[in-house]
Amino acid sequence: MNEAKDLLIILIGSSLVSNVVLSQFLGLCPFLGVSRKVKTAAGMGTAVIFVITLASAVAGVIYKFVLTPLSIQYLQTIVFILVIAALVQFVEMFLKKAMPSLYEALGVYLPLITTNCAVLGVALTNVQKEYGILTGIVNGFATALGFTIAIIILAGLREKMEYNDVPEYFKGMPTVLLTAGLMAIAFCGFSGLL
């Protein structure tokens, strides 16, 4: 019971309170790059949830059963980044073969995720906070969920702002960054939640 409560706290904490993009600045790349349309943003979000959850599971297992027994924890960065790169490739091949419909849906977003620092970030956070494997997976899922929430909201706002009359030099990136800043202020409001 107590454990379930802890997991719930992690779920809310990682997805809303310390949102991965808006307060930790991880995964800004797809956040700014793939947020023009709500539909593509949702696709990216799904792919991120999928990969991060899987990657935090795999990284957790490797850390616990390979790195710790051999006491080579200091190699974590190298090992994690290689594992993540390999995992994404593998997932892509597997999905193509086994679940073509899901592969179609995630399609172009999968390879993009290899370079998403949120994936490595989650794996490292799990180790840093000494989460167990299950807790790590929940944390990974929550972080990715937070990313999805943020990117869908941003995409929605950008669709609305498409035809707005903004000052010339603020067109494009600066407006998006300002929007993200305002969203970050809004998300600060969650900090009283826990």
Binding site: L22, F170, P174, L177, L178, A180, G181, L182, A184
Partner: peptide, 14 residues
């Protein structure tokens, strides 16, 4: 805080 980073960068890009 976090929002400030976005604002400063937005100004910079503009």
């Amino acid at each position: 805080l976090a929002p400030g980073a976005f604002f400063v960068l937005a100004m910079l890009t503009a």
